[in-house]
Design a binder for these strands. Structure first.
Lengths: 143, 143
DNA sequence: CTACATATTGAGAGTAAGTATCACATACAG
DNA sequence: CTGTATGTGATACTTACTCTCAATATGTAG
């Protein structure tokens, strides 16, 4: 099901399907947490060592264009690639205990941007950010 | 004044002052917008070509430790180094027209984090983000 | 003022992420 | 099934850091 969905989303975005893209999307799909560039490349190479480095980056770029993958980047850390369930632009909550990344819906972010516009006269165009902390599941486990 | 303040802030953080650090802090201080790694290195080299690459990065790291510099990073873009007026952790509003970066005060961000905690059961530890758009000044100029 | 322990520097090599190039291969529209 | 636009792999290159190490400078204690 999920695999078919990713295929559909790639096609819907006007991108071609190739075995390499299928494989790379599959790796991202099964990863429990964001993969670094080298982590992704190694995981892909383990499944098919003939896939080149450039193809991995090109595929990630294609998946980003299709809105399927997002790149997380944080100062001082290597950036990570993440397959997103939510369509379109959105933000992330990253749990520092379990590494799980969940999507932050527009409803939560919208009022915040509205505040910025009214308080600072700053017209928000876009923002891409991740909030780090402890997810509900991990909090419960810590009681 | 500003230079003295930066010196004080470096010392207060328990970091040593060296001519190189003074010079690099000065470059960041006069930069109107965030400097990329290479931009910073080139600007520094123009003032003193004997300063090594490693020193520039080490100094930036020391200034980050002292809370004087923040690194902006955005997916798909080179990260930028920025001298911050505000002490402590904070966030930025980046104007896409004039490049000006202003600080986003805790008062604006706090309620947003509170919403995340109450709506998602997600305990926020930290977040470092930049919001892109058009600042009040540029908006006025566009009327 | 001097000496010393400790931190910092510069040079240069090394690593990781990502991009460019180009001949060859393949997806998919017609 | 054929043609063409697009994708692929190999490889070289660029940018952004990081590491090492001998030489040097900082700030403190005497």
């Amino acid at each position: 099901m999920a695999s078919e969905t990713v295929r559909d989303r790639i096609l819907a975005a006007g991108e071609r399907i190739t075995p390499q893209r299928d494989l790379i999307a599959g790796v991202l799909e099964t990863a429990p947490r964001p993969l670094s560039a080298s982590g992704l490349y190694e995981a892909v190479a383990r499944l098919d060592p003939r896939i080149g480095r450039a193809t991995v980056f090109r595929t990630v770029a294609a998946l980003e264009r299709a809105g399927i993958v997002e790149q997380l980047s944080l100062p001082g850390e290597r950036s990570g690639y993440l397959l997103c369930a939510t369509v379109g632009h959105h933000h992330h909550l990253v749990c520092q205990r379990c590494g799980k990344v969940s999507d932050l819906p527009e409803e939560t972010v919208g009022p915040f941007f509205a505040t910025i516009e009214s308080d600072h006269g700053f017209s928000v165009d876009h923002a891409s950010f991740s909030v780090y902390g402890t997810c509900a599941g991990c909090s419960a486990r810590l009681v």
